[in-house]
């Protein structure tokens, strides 16, 4: 083997190494961590409380692996605050050589919040997060309400979505956020999304003064005194 040939062989070797390493790094560009959680109901009010239930939390996933967790609940009743049935939560996640992701879903049927102030035949929260060579993203496709009413007014007819972060006032109670979406991540190497389909914020005024003529509270600051969540799902991918 002469020197010239050796020169080309060396160049080829370097090229091969570079190509191999680049291909390897590109393929390994998927996320190295995934997370997921889902629960159907959560109540924290002066009327009563109930922890996140039924709660499914994605176990740790490492290497090129995957996992699933699920939880079922027949019915929940926190008197005066929330009643619901057919409660289900599922989350799963995976890390592959080219892509990684997580997906979570939770549901609740026959939903009745605050003695009929908010009702729905069914609520489904559904999120997914994915990361690969084209970047990282999340969405809440499949998150819907079935025959949702708020303060007696129909919001959805049949099974339908509501615009993200739709807020409605609940006079004397506080307010509700429908399809509350909380994104995380940079959209390049990481992404996450939490969806709370119904999130009621109970509020009271503190620090105000009572008008002696009308009896109404003037001024003051609204303070959150409790919350009710129905249909929560979270998924995330990260470096």
């Amino acid at each position: 083997m002469n020197g010239k040939t050796m020169h080309w062989v060396n160049r080829l070797a370097v090229l091969g190494l570079v190509v191999g390493l680049v291909a390897g790094l590109a393929a390994a560009g998927s996320a190295q961590s995934v997370g997921g959680q889902a629960y159907s109901t959560y109540v924290n009010t002066p009327l009563g409380s109930s922890s996140q239930s039924p709660l499914a939390v994605l176990p740790a996933v490492s290497g090129t692996d995957g996992a699933e967790a699920d939880a079922e609940g027949s019915a929940l009743n926190v008197a005066g605050a929330l009643s619901s049935d057919f409660l289900n939560s599922v989350t799963s996640g995976e890390i592959g050589s080219a892509e990684a992701g997580a997906q979570s879903t939770s549901s609740a049927a026959s939903v009745n919040i605050l003695n009929g102030l908010i009702t729905a035949d069914e609520v489904v929260a559904n999120v997914m997060s994915s990361a690969g060579q084209s970047g990282a993203f999340s969405n809440a496709d499949g998150s819907t309400f079935t025959n949702l009413t708020v303060a007696g007014v129909p919001v959805t007819s049949g099974d339908a979505a509501v615009a993200p972060n739709t807020q409605q006032s609940l006079p004397g109670v506080g307010y509700v956020v429908l399809n509350e979406q909380i994104p995380t991540g940079d959209g390049v190497t990481s992404s996450g999304l939490t969806v709370n389909m119904i999130h009621v914020y109970l509020q009271s005024m503190t620090g105000g003064t009572v008008d002696p003529l009308t009896g109404q509270v003037i001024g003051g600051i609204p303070t959150t005194t409790g919350e009710i969540i129905v249909g929560s799902a979270t998924s995330s991918v990260g470096p």
Binding site: L12, A13, G16, L17, V18, V19, G20, L21, A23, G24, L25, A26, A27, A28, G96, S97, A98, E99
Partner: peptide, 16 residues
């Protein structure tokens, strides 16, 4: 040559 082989194997192994 081992380097070339290693590179090739790495590329193949990391492809989905």
């Amino acid at each position: 040559w081992p380097s070339l082989l290693a590179a090739g194997l790495l590329a193949a192994a990391c492809t989905d």
